[in-house]
């Protein structure tokens, strides 16, 4: 544009509108008003911080066994949460176990969100043959029940934390890819994408600047709801002996080794389960609140 003059002031009058606020600022504002979501977020933060600072917080070495101090009930003999079947301090083990369990909840989801989300966005944006090729492969994986798939994968790859990380990642790629594909397809058909194409922009640029901004929100909310599933499945793998191996402190594994003691020291045996439950429920509720807060229309 060579020469641009200002139009007469009559062309508009200033609208009386509240100050400008970004979308995410609005989301945050709405989220902060949601009590349940906020409480659950606190719980998660507390668990995460406890896990991170486990070496500082743990009253004892989580791996030191003691045959004479086995299965002490919580609160007795100076053990806040008692001891396990090998006389190790439960509190310390739960703190350390949070490290493994939380990582096993979050890491596979992060990986599969990147891979599955990317595949889904590509499939959704380009449509037609590319969509067909990607989504049919995804569908094949999706057809297996997720637990069975994880068990099968871990079985093939062998036990160990790394292998269960890989199998969990593979398990969560299909559902995330499907969600990403469907939201991308919706966004892709909107006029503003067509308008962006009309400026002559290439596909990569349109995906990065126009599509991603509109699909990351829904994809992330969905992915966050899968964290709890991931924690449960990884605990399940450990429980089955396919994940973390003894003596690693891991909630699933602890649940497994303590199960024989369930009649002798029921509280001790249930504690790892309570942690798994608390964490996964909190993740779910936070993810719910996030979804509500992100819904512009409500």
């Amino acid at each position: 544009m060579t020469e641009i003059a200002v139009l007469p002031a009559t062309a508009h009058t200033p609208a009386r509108r509240p100050p400008q606020r970004g979308y995410w600022r609005n989301v945050l504002k709405r989220f902060l008003r949601d009590r349940i979501g906020l409480v659950c977020l606190m719980v998660l933060l507390a668990i995460a911080l406890a896990a991170i600072f486990a070496p500082l917080l743990a009253p004892a070495d989580p791996y030191r066994t003691s045959m004479i101090r086995r299965l002490i009930a919580p609160g007795e003999k100076g053990y806040l949460l008692g001891t396990d079947e090998l006389g190790r301090d439960m509190l310390s083990r739960l703190l350390y176990g949070g490290r493994v369990s939380l990582s096993m909840g979050i890491a596979p989801i992060v990986l599969s969100t990147m891979i599955g989300g990317g595949l889904g966005v590509i499939a959704g944006y380009f449509g037609r043959h590319i969509n067909m090729m990607i989504m049919r492969v995804i569908d094949v994986f999706y057809a297996f029940p997720s637990v069975l798939l994880a068990v099968a994968m871990a079985g093939v790859l062998g036990s160990g934390i790394l292998n269960s990380l890989i199998s969990l990642t593979l398990v969560f790629i299909p559902p995330i890819a499907r969600v990403a594909e469907s939201v991308t397809t919706q966004v892709r058909n909107q006029d503003f994408v067509e308008a962006a194409r009309a400026t002559g922009a290439g596909s990569a640029r349109i995906i990065i600047e126009h599509v991603l901004a509109n699909v990351t929100g829904p994809i992330l909310t969905y992915a966050s709801s899968l964290v709890s599933v991931s924690i449960i499945i990884s605990s399940g793998l450990s429980f089955l002996g396919l994940g973390a191996s003894p003596p690693t402190a891991d909630w699933g594994l602890m649940l497994n080794t303590l199960r024989q003691a369930v009649y002798v020291a029921p509280v001790n045996a249930v504690l790892p389960g309570v942690m798994i439950f608390l964490t996964s429920v909190s993740f779910n509720l936070v993810s719910d609140s996030l979804r509500t807060a992100m819904d512009v229309r409500a």
């Binding site: 979308y23 909107q190 006029d191 503003f192 067509e194 308008a195 962006a196 400026t199 002559g200 922009a201 640029r205 600047e209 126009h210 901004a213 509109n214």
Partner: peptide
């Protein structure tokens, strides 16, 4: 409404085409 990206400000939306070229 549909022809503007809901996550872009007015100036970003208008500048997009210029950045493309």
């Amino acid at each position: 409404y549909a022809s503007l990206n809901p996550r872009h400000t007015a100036v970003a939306e208008i500048a997009f085409g210029l950045r493309v070229i």
